[in-house]
């Protein structure tokens, strides 16, 4: 894509991001989401994040990489621990990045 095509794609990204943010707040004031939809949606964050994360950790080159050379996978363990115990989004991200940087420096 050239830059003007990228800009058009960004406009599309903006629309599909904005609608799920705005529409429920506008349409649901006073009413509740149908329990079935609410229940289905409550599973979306956990499943979509896991589906996005797992290939980056387990098969970065589209091949299964279950070895000690896989820094991304190894760093995920303490990063999960940090997320679980510290419960702070930004500290967790910083821990993950610092671990990967350190691993590359020393290994």
């Amino acid at each position: 894509m050239d830059q003007s095509q990228i800009f058009l794609a960004i406009c599309g990204m903006a629309v599909v991001t904005c609608l799920p943010r705005i529409l429920p707040a506008l349409l649901l004031s006073g009413r509740r989401l149908s329990p079935w939809i609410a229940r289905w949606l409550s599973f979306v964050p956990a499943t979509v994040l896991a589906a996005l994360l797992a290939p980056a950790l387990l098969c970065p080159e589209h091949k299964l990489a279950l070895s000690f050379d896989n820094i991304f996978l190894l760093a995920a363990i303490p990063t999960f621990a940090a997320a679980f115990f510290l419960k702070n989004f930004f500290v967790t991200v910083a821990v993950g990045m610092a671990l990967v940087a350190l691993a590359r420096y020393f290994v």
Binding site: A46, A56, F72, F80, A83, F84, F90, G96, R104
Partner: peptide, 16 residues
């Protein structure tokens, strides 16, 4: 500086 791990780390922080 581990910048390529920003996204996986972010997913972990949101997922936990």
């Amino acid at each position: 500086i581990g910048l390529d791990y920003a996204l996986p780390a972010m997913f972990i922080a949101l997922l936990a």
